[in-house]
């Protein structure tokens, strides 16, 4: 399995060749906020050791997909399988065991503001492992070094810069040496050099710890740099799943828009704008959700 994983990581290999079991398998996922459907029939497969980047404009449903992948939201329909466990049906003890094998770095870091950096990073260990404090501190400091935050242990989250916050969040996400790591918008709100350094960190982590990663981003440059494969979400539907070259080649106009940096945001806004013009309330009428659209 390790051999296959490393094969996959050598970028050009198409994932479909590998007979290894996928680490993540999503089938027919549907998600709603109230009456508003935000994910339509999403399928997704991620292989061991792969870095899967989920791209799409803001409001396309990336974060919602991530919430379903990590079990924070229950799907209205469909199944989500992580490391062979169907998390929509898992019992709480199975889920707890699974949680030790996955790490999540949230968009804003989501560090606990009442604890310093070291205590934040140690918290998963304190909960899941029976170790003495000294050992846990050493393990936490090791992870701080991995993310280039050595020496920041005693700082409070409010004293960290945006880039440092995300790094600390990564350190907390990898403290249990997870096999699966999820990232929401690692580069959002960071200046280019800091965000590029974070991309390097993601690549370094995969190399050093052979993790499988799902990275949500709307930054094209970052996606092309780190991705083995890219999933493009558009208004809750998957438009394309392919490697970097395949995405570049695609002649789908919406993807070309994305590539040419013609802001996809304006298009999403355009729809909202239309809704406003037609006097619809923010929730779109049920009819549009049910009739499959031609274009």
């Amino acid at each position: 399995m390790t051999a296959q994983a490393s094969q996959l990581t050598s970028a050009q290999e198409p994932a479909a060749v590998s007979p290894a079991a996928p680490v993540i398998r999503v089938e027919g996922l549907q998600a709603f906020y109230g009456a508003q459907q935000v994910l339509f029939d999403v399928d997704l497969t991620v292989m061991p050791g792969e870095i899967m980047v989920v791209m799409g404009g803001s409001g396309s449903g990336k974060s919602t997909l991530l919430r379903h992948l990590v079990g924070l939201s229950r799907p209205a329909a469909g199944r989500v399988e992580l490391l062979g466990l169907d998390i929509t049906r898992a019992r709480s003890m199975e889920m707890l065991a699974l949680r030790r094998k996955i790490g999540v770095a949230f968009q804003g870091g989501a560090l606990f503001s009442s604890m310093n950096v070291l205590d934040n990073i140690m918290l998963p260990l304190r909960e899941h492992a029976r170790l003495d404090r000294k050992t846990m501190e050493i393990m936490a400091r090791l992870k701080l070094e991995v993310v280039n935050l050595a020496g920041a242990d005693a700082l409070m989250p409010s004293e960290l810069s945006g880039g440092m916050l995300k790094r600390a969040a990564v350190a907390r996400a990898i403290i249990m040496d997870p096999t699966l790591l999820f990232f929401d918008e690692p580069s959002a709100g960071l200046d280019p050099t800091v965000s590029s350094a974070l991309d390097d960190l993601i690549l370094k982590l995969r190399e050093a710890m052979n993790m499988t990663m799902v990275v949500v981003t709307h930054e094209l440059e970052s996606a092309f740099k780190i991705a083995d494969r890219i999933t493009i979400l558009d208004q809750g539907r998957i438009l394309l799943v392919d490697d970097v070259a395949g995405v570049r080649r695609s002649d789908n106009p919406r993807i070309q828009n994305l590539l040419n940096r013609r802001s996809e945001e304006t298009e999403v806004d355009a729809q909202a704008y239309l809704q406003r013009l037609t006097g619809e309330t923010p929730t779109p009428p049920a009819a549009t959700n049910e009739t499959p659209e031609a274009s």
């Binding site: 919430r67 990590v70 079990g71 924070l72 889920m95 707890l96 949680r99 030790r100 996955i102 999540v104 949230f106 968009q107 804003g108 989501a110 560090l111 606990f112 503001s113 918290l123 998963p124 909960e127 899941h128 907390r172």
Partner: peptide, 17 residues
């Protein structure tokens, strides 16, 4: 509510707490 909005509550749940 601050913890909720900063996703600290989500972070707890994801850690398994």
């Amino acid at each position: 509510s601050t913890m909720m909005i900063n996703q600290e509550v989500d972070a707890l749940r994801v850690i398994g707490i």
